[in-house]
Simulated scan of single mutants.
Amino acid sequence: MASLSIRKLEDDTLQRLRIRAALHQVSMEEEVRRILRQAVMPPTRLGSLAVTYFGEEGVELELPQREVYEPVSFDA
């Protein structure tokens, strides 16, 4: 595996990273790995997201009845 060094990291950023790692109960190094992994993941496709939430079978929806409107007439 590769290693990465980050120079000139602001003190405030380092402090927030330290707090975030403590909240997740992991080392700062592990927290940075998680942040980077999440940042470069490909976006979830909408269809995949729907399958995750609703399963392969999907769901049945009852749609409300639509009212039929007469077109507006501009004839005098």
Rank of each mutant, 00 (worst) to 15 (best):
E70N: 08
E29D: 11
V26E: 03
G47P: 03
V40L: 08
V26R: 06
E67L: 14
I35A: 14
L61S: 04
G47T: 13
L49H: 13
R66P: 01
S5A: 10
V59Y: 03
E67R: 14
H24N: 13
A50P: 01
M41S: 12
L63C: 05
I19S: 07
E60I: 06
R45Q: 11
D12I: 09
S27P: 04
Q15V: 05
E56R: 15
D75N: 10
Q65K: 15
Q65T: 05
E10H: 11
L61Y: 07
E10F: 02
L17K: 00
F74W: 11
M1C: 05
H24L: 12
Q38F: 10
E57Y: 00
F54W: 12
S3R: 15
T44W: 10
E57G: 06
R16G: 04
F74M: 08
E60F: 07
R16A: 09
E56S: 13
Q25V: 00
L23Q: 14
R33I: 02
F54I: 09
L14A: 10
F74R: 14
F74K: 10
G58T: 09
V40G: 03
L4S: 04
V68Y: 07
G58Q: 10
R16E: 14
R7Q: 04
A21L: 05
L61K: 06
R37M: 06
S5I: 05
V51Q: 08
M1P: 06
D75G: 07
L14D: 05
P43Y: 04
E62F: 05
G47A: 12
F74Q: 09
L9P: 02
E70A: 12
I6R: 03
E67Y: 03
L46R: 13
E31H: 11
E56A: 15
G47Q: 11
L61M: 15
S5N: 11
V40N: 02
I35K: 06
T44M: 15
H24Y: 12
L49E: 14
E10A: 14
Q38P: 00
E70M: 09
F54P: 02
R18Y: 01
A2L: 04
R66C: 03
I35M: 12
D12Q: 10
T52A: 15
G55D: 00
R33D: 00
E56H: 12
D12K: 13
R7N: 08
S5D: 07
R7I: 01
S5C: 02
